[in-house]
Amino acid sequence: MLLLIFVYLSIFAFIFMSLAKAITFAKMPMHGRWELYPVPKEGKGRGEYGGSYMEEVEWWKKPREISHAGELKEMLKEMLFIKNLFENQRPLWWISYSLHLGIYILFAWAFLLLVGAITELSGLPIVTEAGVNSNGWASLVYYATFLTGVIGALLVALGSAGLFFRRMTLESMKKYTTPQDYFNLLFIFAVAFTGILVWISDPGFNYGRDIMKSLLTFSPIEANGILAIHIILLGILLAYIPQSKMSHYVGKYFTFHKVLWENEPNLPGSEIEKKVEEAKKFKPSRNWSAPHFQPAEKQSKE
């Protein structure tokens, strides 16, 4: 039962701490404009070459054309393929993308485990005593789970180990890497590796569906040996990620959407104008200490 509670807690920790991080960033005061072109949401094809609405005479009198498709396209390229790394540092991209693609595939795998668990709870076993259920849906779920699980875990293990060794051996990376950076990669590798060990003894991932069933029915998770270690490591990793810089899935949203691609002009009556007026009312309780921050009379005495 303790293990069940632990798994629940770690999933909640991951979700809520990630959300809390996002809320912390979202609540920060409006910053000065710090956009960087190309801004893909710029309409009239400008997103492609880096142009903006400021290329027009008296831009404030003209309707703003925003290409949501352009923004979505660029966002998906970055999210799904890590485009910037692909274009600018291909050797590292292979390794990094292996890790990230592996994680995406493992999310699909977890979902398929959930689907499998629900299927079994509804009375259709995925695996029978004779082997994989010949029912079309059951075998589809089985093999899809099998493929995503194996491929995902191998990619994650390969990616995390690859990044670890690249950092250790490449002088230009090594000197900037902290012990925590190595620890993070090793931690991910340990989870993937123990997962692979568990899979070797249970190639159909039946243990995964059993855990999902326990989570759905609030019944104790039965696990010992390497499976217990794997579950505990994965649980701690889930809770740790949002507290580390591995939570860049949160940060990346803000760096692109709220900083680099945020070029909303301050027009009369706009939301931005309201925020500007609100910001003007803020009075800090302390200030910077350089002479030019001091009242004029103090400056003149100095």
Binding site: M28, P284, W288
Partner: peptide, 13 residues
């Protein structure tokens, strides 16, 4: 966020 309000978000990111 009191003394660097205008840049605290991009700085922390």
């Amino acid at each position: 966020d009191e003394t660097n309000r205008n840049y605290i978000q991009p700085l922390l990111l």
